Simulated assay, not measured.
Amino acid sequence: MNRLTHLPRFVTALACLLAPLAAQALEIQPYSADALAAAQSAGKPVAVHFHAPWCPTCRAQAKVFDGLKPDASLPLPLLVADYDSERALRQKLGVRTQSTLIVWRGAKETARLAGETDADRLRAALRSAVSPAQ
């Protein structure tokens, strides 16, 4: 038996070991009031990105967020809210412009950015809810 015969089992085992790490990375999903409420009531980190499909800044932010998906230091959901249709949510949260990112740890807001496309600043905002120092 050569070494390659064990390769499929090794790859499967490695995938099983790495799967929990992937689950701990940034998870981008559509906004839902239930998802936001559940994370906040459990004291977990959560973020909402107010996105408009017509907004070039929002599209640039979305590319940055996509690039941050595998970042294991960002174990939180990023809920994408449609800026145009979520008027009540915008009013409740005091959002005045598309491309706004709001980050919480539980019910405590830890960061708010509008119009920011710098990857390091967006990552830092998201980490603000994960870091115990915040």
Rank of each mutant, 00 (worst) to 15 (best):
L26D: 10
L26K: 04
L26H: 05
L26P: 08
E27W: 04
I28C: 06
I28D: 06
I28R: 08
I28T: 06
Q29T: 12
Q29W: 02
Y31A: 04
A33P: 00
D34H: 07
D34K: 10
A35Y: 04
A35M: 05
A37N: 12
A38S: 12
A39Y: 08
Q40D: 07
Q40V: 08
Q40L: 08
Q40E: 08
Q40K: 08
S41R: 12
S41H: 12
S41N: 12
A42K: 13
V46R: 01
V46M: 07
V46F: 09
A47H: 08
A47V: 07
V48C: 04
H49S: 03
H49E: 01
P53A: 07
P53K: 11
P53G: 13
W54R: 14
W54A: 10
W54Q: 14
W54S: 12
C55H: 07
T57D: 10
R59G: 11
R59Q: 15
R59W: 05
A60R: 09
Q61G: 02
V64Y: 11
D66K: 15
D66H: 14
L68T: 04
K69D: 12
D71P: 07
L74K: 06
L76V: 05
L76E: 06
P77H: 00
L78K: 10
L78V: 00
V80E: 02
A81H: 01
Y83V: 01
Y83M: 00
D84F: 00
D84Q: 07
R87S: 10
A88G: 00
L89C: 08
R90P: 06
R90W: 10
K92M: 04
K92Q: 13
L93P: 02
L93S: 04
L93W: 08
V95F: 03
Q98Y: 03
Q98E: 12
S99V: 01
S99H: 03
S99Y: 00
S99Q: 06
T100I: 01
L101A: 02
I102M: 12
I102P: 01
I102N: 02
G106T: 06
G106R: 02
K108A: 11
E109I: 05
E109C: 03
T110R: 09
A111I: 04
R112N: 03
R112G: 03
A114C: 05
A114G: 09
E116Q: 15
E116K: 09
D120N: 07
R121Y: 05
L122C: 08
R123Y: 08
R123Q: 12
A125H: 13
A125D: 14
R127F: 12
R127E: 15
S128Q: 14
A129L: 10
V130A: 15
S131D: 15
P132F: 05
P132T: 03
A133N: 09
Q134G: 14
